[in-house]
């Protein structure tokens, strides 16, 4: 319930924070958006865990609370004598519904991960030549793909490598290496998996903004490494033109909410990296969900504070 309330609250507040966020330096923005995306699910999981804490502590022989009266009134799930009182039954129902929802959502995510593993396997199998930090694949679509979580690998299609100027290929490799360095595929997957408690539309918008921030952060890294922002912008245009000319009729991989990122990335590169300094620290972004959850469920936070102070 806390996660759902936090998700709803954050979805309502996001349009207020968004204009300020969009002017921030891209890597900072990506980190802030990642925190924003995963906050509701993390809070939900945290408070769900907290429901079991008194019971677990009791089993371990640790006094459950500083204030007995308060501890007894704290909604919790008793593992020793489950389903005695009516409030416990409703808590079990809530936990069961929450778990079922997350299980279904994560099962769908797991299916996507399975497809991703197949793609990685196919790319590994198909690779022909291996450069120092990338592999060439015989694929008609002009594409550069970074795939993998812990040790992401860069795959560049031969059609792309043969069509671009050497400098443009260096831009692409610098961009993809930035993805590898920051483990962006892993972070994006975490955001996908832990943004389950948002409604579809705000979730799509948040994830699209995160994708844009991540791409822009890697553009900035590539521009810094190559030393030419305009070459990065030219490379994006060149790859877009190649994809337009590509014979392959790509099925839509995603239904975009805010449209294509390439134009926004080029415009940001032409703006010479003029980003505003944050007017508030990042941790302040997480204060709205914490405030909301404290208002909704003051007991568990009070209880946890007592527990920490006591032990």
């Amino acid at each position: 319930m806390v996660g759902v309330v936090a998700g709803g609250g954050l979805a309502l507040l996001y349009p207020l924070f968004r204009p300020g966020l969009l002017t921030r330096q891209p890597r900072q923005r990506a980190n802030a958006l990642l925190g924003w995306a995963v906050a509701p699910a993390c809070l939900g999981l945290f408070f769900t865990t907290l429901l079991f804490v008194p019971s677990i502590l009791n089993r371990l022989g640790i006094p459950a609370g500083h204030c007995h009266n308060h501890a007894e009134r704290l909604p919790h799930i008793c593992l020793t004598n489950p389903l005695i009182s009516g409030s416990e039954i409703s808590l079990w129902n809530l936990v069961a519904a929450f778990s079922l929802f997350l299980a279904c959502f994560w099962a769908a995510q797991g299916a996507q991960l399975h497809k991703l593993a197949r793609l990685k396997s196919a790319l590994r199998c198909a690779k022909e030549k291996t450069g120092t930090n990338h592999s060439l694949i015989p694929w008609g679509t002009p594409a550069a793909i970074t795939v993998g979580f812990w040790t992401p690998k860069i795959f560049v299609s031969k059609s792309l490598a043969q069509s671009l100027l050497p400098g443009q290929l260096q831009v692409i490799l610098a961009h993809e290496q930035a993805h590898v360095r920051y483990r962006d595929p892993l972070l994006q997957s975490l955001a996908q998996a832990l943004s389950a408690l948002y409604l579809a539309q705000p979730r799509r918008r948040l994830l699209d903004d995160l994708a844009l921030a991540t791409e822009q952060a890697c553009d900035e890294e590539a521009a810094q490494k190559i030393g030419d922002r305009l070459l990065v912008a030219e490379t994006i245009v060149a790859v877009e033109r190649l994809l337009h000319r590509s014979q392959r009729n790509l099925a839509p991989l995603v239904v975009g909410f805010v449209g294509n990122n390439s134009a926004l990335r080029i415009e940001a590169l032409l703006a010479d990296g003029e980003y505003s300094e944050p007017s508030f620290p990042d941790w302040l972004l997480l204060s709205p969900p914490l405030a909301v959850t404290h208002l909704v469920m003051p007991g568990p936070l009070h209880y946890l504070s007592e527990l920490i102070i006591r032990h």
Binding site: K115, P152, Q188, S262
Partner: peptide, 22 residues
């Protein structure tokens, strides 16, 4: 394999230099 990624959220789990679909 890429065709089978269509319509899901897998595309967000990998990184392409430019969006292949849009």
């Amino acid at each position: 394999v890429v065709d089978k990624l269509s319509g899901g959220s897998t595309e967000a789990m990998l990184s392409t230099f430019v969006d292949l679909a849009e």
